[in-house]
């Protein structure tokens, strides 16, 4: 660590040369993209129906929920936090909304989505409060709330599932309808990306999230309200989980107590593949989306390549570990090249 702070040269003359190297930071996204393309080509050779419009659309639809959650998780990770409760929040919001729509058929889909977001937001707010106001470590706070929300979901469901016949057509239609041939889920995900892109890159609050994650101490000195930011990211995460709860239930036309159990790990894995640092401060939207896409492709490609179901987890683990280690190794190589160029 001492080396890191000291390795930048004092002379400003080096600045020009290094700024070119800084451009290599994009390498990560490019590498991930190249990997995805290679994988896609590989699968395509094994199964020609892989890169058909229909299958690509299916993949996009199936990845939409994961990628929406990954966007929220990225913000949480950027602030040096983690949220293990999103699967439970998703289930709770999905279950409650499903119960509402099954009880009153006239409930408009838009209202259902808003209700879901509302429920998720409240769940996220509680976690944000625990983390920001009481200083509970995120991993512990969300672990505890994961248990609690999951318990609530079971209690609310009373052991019953809400099935498709109980849901009005309009509600199921949220996830199955399409505009101009593109599934609504994909459109919602695109909308979230664009909103997130604007929020992260072009608003003060968005940048403050990165500031808090990059250096909480100086954020305080700059007058950034750290607590507000923390509450905000967990609330956003909760809101997105709530939204995904509705989308999930609508997509699968069924609400269960154990919906999305363990899903948080896939979401975190997508973020990690996308290059979000657990240590906070850095994480790019493009990377996270690519990470989610990679996981989506793996989920879709492995069954299509007729890989034994028993090998799927092992392959998934190897790819994640390999990608993470490769990325670290590439970064080191870049740094070393950089050192070699320095004159002594």
């Amino acid at each position: 660590m001492a080396v890191h702070t000291a390795n930048a040269p004092a002379a400003e003359s080096a600045a020009k040369k290094e700024s070119k190297l800084a451009g290599l930071a994009k390498f990560r996204e490019l590498g991930l993209l190249a990997f995805i393309l290679l994988l896609a080509i590989g699968v395509q050779i094994r199964n020609p129906s892989f890169l058909t419009i229909e299958n690509v659309m299916d993949m996009a639809t199936n990845t939409a929920i994961l990628s929406i959650l990954a966007v929220g998780m990225m913000l949480v990770l950027v602030t040096r936090g983690i949220d293990l409760s999103i699967g439970a929040t998703l289930a709770l919001s999905g279950m409650l909304v499903a119960q509402i729509v099954s009880a009153s058929a006239g409930f408009s889909p838009l209202l259902a989505v808003i209700t879901g977001i509302g429920i998720g937001t409240v769940c996220g707010l509680v976690i944000g409060g625990l983390v920001a106001w009481l200083g509970v470590l995120p991993i512990i706070a969300t672990l505890a709330m994961m248990n609690i929300y999951r318990g609530f979901t079971y209690m609310a469901s009373d052991g019953k599932w809400i099935s498709s016949y109980q849901m009005p057509e309009s509600f199921v239609g949220i996830a199955t309808s399409s505009v101009l041939g593109i599934n609504t889920l994909i459109l919602i995900a695109l909308f979230i990306y664009i909103a997130a892109y604007y929020f992260i890159g072009h608003t003060r609050t968005g940048r403050q999230i990165y500031a808090v994650g990059s250096n909480p101490e100086s954020a305080k000195v700059t007058g950034i309200n750290e607590k507000k930011i923390l509450i905000l990211v967990y609330t956003l995460m909760g809101g997105l989980s709530g939204l995904c709860g509705v989308l999930w239930v609508s997509k699968f036309a069924s609400a269960q107590g154990d919906t999305a159990s363990g899903y948080e790990l896939s979401v975190i894995a997508a973020c990690i593949l996308g290059g979000v640092s657990i240590a906070g401060g850095s994480g790019k939207l493009s990377g996270v989306i690519l990470g989610a896409v990679l996981i989506g492709i793996l989920n879709n490609a492995l069954p299509m390549m007729d890989v034994s179901p028993f090998w799927q987890k092992g392959i998934e683990g190897t790819i994640i570990l390999g990608a993470v280690l490769l990325n670290a190794a590439v970064k080191r190589g870049v740094e070393r090249n950089h050192l070699l160029r320095r004159r002594i």
Binding site: L265, I268, A269, I272, W311, Q312, K313, G314, I315, E316, G317, T318, I320, L321, V324
Partner: peptide, 11 residues
Amino acid sequence: ITLATMILYRG
């Protein structure tokens, strides 16, 4: 790292 090995070991 342990997230990756978690998936790997069970795999």
